[in-house]
Design a protein around this nucleic acid. Structure first.
Length: 441
RNA sequence: GGCCCUAUCGUCUAGGGGUCUAGGACAGAGCCCUCUCAAGGCUUAAACACGGGUUCGAAGCCCGUUAGGGCCGCCA
């Protein structure tokens, strides 16, 4: 009956994994997993001059990071290899011979071109619907070149040949290929192969409406891995770009997306990438992290910021980072948020100095200091009582003492719960820092 | 220039002729909570690109205009 579902992601390794490419891969993967089909990774490395090993590696890493495991392709094997176009030359020669024999080719200045049958071709697209292309006019739809004089192959030809050879059932790709599709269909027919189903998904733009291109900040998956985004969050966000569960949900487990995924729910218009929404969604995922994972990712974030927390006692690091759980959206925010734990010579925020290190506050901070100094037990509860009692004695609101104290020990106005961070810091460090602060005004 | 796709709040979207005084989310504003910052709760502002049809009735169908995007390579 119907042939098995086989889809492919076919990047050319000429740069890092682009957000748009990742989304294309994701939709292929979702479709394959939804139908229990096969997801193939094929590397289109026919452009010798621009291909690099590093680019290919970046693509593998990016896909793996997003959890988009491929069933066939590099490192995965499969019965339809090789999965690098650069290694499939004899296959292309064979198909070209077939095409030549059937009289579909002609030579033009040493290049080989495919002669269009000059008919109407209807593309019945799973996303865009049925589109009738009139290919009868050579002026508007010139014959396409399939092989250069130097013997190298053109994308359109090898792409189609590989999809035939690899028994691809559904071609899911960016809308930028929609206009090429009728020509591809002509090629399938000329080669005597039934065309696959096509699904062209709309492109992704920047916030300013421009096309997201390689030079844009945030256009690469690597940008998000480096900054400590969570793969599940990025993947979830990418799903929302052009697909909708139609029930107003935003944060959806990937298993559920897999079971819901359908091209009926894929939007036909271009989408704009919104870093703010991704940031929010990442925060949602961050807040659900298990403590252990939060700790590990936190340590990694400090490491990428240039600070090795290995030099501090494990217990201290753990206690410190645990006060930050639920307080950040992306891990690259953590070093700034919790850095004070690991640097005794904190620098005081200028705005904070003006507001809190005032003549009026000096005796207050001194009172806090002596209250702390008298404490035997320095846990959060004890510290809180001491501070509140001091406030009471001075006849001021607790906040009046909280702000200068926080500034003195952390250098900023924002951070983890004051009482808990004081406990983690410990009496000795706290007193030293308060002294140091008191000496500045 | 030719061909093709698209058009709902700033952004992602719900909507597939009546239940739309158009719903949700992010971002914005305000309030509450509160040791700060977040988070959370509540409230608020914000859109059917325009013009014609079709219809008793249009955000939804048709045509046109405009706008955005894509393709028209011996790039992929």
């Amino acid at each position: 009956m119907s042939s098995p579902i086989r889809v492919r992601f076919a990047p050319s390794p000429t740069g890092y994994l682009h957000i748009g490419g990742a989304r294309t891969a994701l939709f292929n993967w979702l479709f394959a997993r939804h139908h229990g089909g096969t997801f193939v990774l094929r590397v289109e490395d026919t452009d010798q001059a621009r291909n690099t090993e590093e680019a290919a590696a970046a693509i593998y890493e990016g896909l793996k990071w997003l959890g988009l495991n491929w069933d066939e392709g590099p490192h995965a094997g499969g019965n339809f290899g090789p999965y690098f176009q650069s290694q499939r030359n004899d296959i292309y020669e064979r198909y070209l011979a077939k095409l030549k024999e059937a009289g579909h080719t002609f030579e033009d200045n040493g290049a080989i071109r495919f002669r269009s049958p000059r008919e109407h071709v209807v593309v019945d697209d799973l996303v865009a619907g049925s589109i009738d292309f009139d290919l009868t006019n050579p002026e508007t739809h010139p014959d396409m070149t399939i092989r250069r004089p130097d013997g190298s192959w053109i994308f359109h030809f090898v792409n189609v040949v590989d999809d035939i050879e690899m028994k691809i059932s559904h071609v899911i790709r960016g809308e930028d290929h929609l206009s090429n599709t009728p020509k591809h269909i002509e090629l399938y027919r000329a080669l005597g192969a039934p065309p696959p189903r096509f699904a062209h998904i709309a492109l992704i733009h920047n916030m300013d409406g421009s096309k997201m291109s390689k030079r844009d900040q945030g256009a690469s998956i690597e940008h998000y891995t480096k900054r400590g985004y969570l793969p599940a969050a990025v993947r979830n966000y990418l799903c929302l770009l052009g697909w909708s569960p139609k029930d107003n949900r935003e944060k959806i487990p990937i298993d559920e997306i897999v079971s819901l995924f359908d091209f009926k729910n894929v939007v036909r218009s271009n989408a704009t990438f919104d870093p703010d929404k991704l940031h929010w969604l990442n925060g949602e995922y961050c807040r659900e992290l298990q403590p252990e994972e939060f700790l590990q990712r936190g340590i990694a974030a400090f490491k990428s910021a240039g600070l090795d927390l290995g030099q501090f006692p494990d217990d201290y690091v753990r206690a410190a980072l645990m006060t930050c759980v639920g307080k950040i959206n992306v891990f690259d925010e953590l070093p700034a948020y919790a850095g004070f734990y690991f640097a005794d010579d904190v620098s005081f925020n200028p705005e904070g100095i003006a507001k809190n290190f005032t003549a009026e506050n000096k005796p207050r901070l001194q009172a806090v200091r002596s209250a702390f100094a008298g404490l035997g037990n320095f846990d959060a509860g004890a510290v809180e009582s001491a501070l509140k009692e001091t406030a009471k004695n001075l006849g001021v609101k607790v906040g009046i003492l909280v702000h200068p104290t926080r500034l003195a020990v952390t250098g900023t106005h924002a951070g983890p719960s004051l009482y808990h961070l004081l406990e983690v810091l410990g009496k000795e460090r706290v007193l030293a820092r308060v002294d140091r602060a008191l000496a500045t005004f």
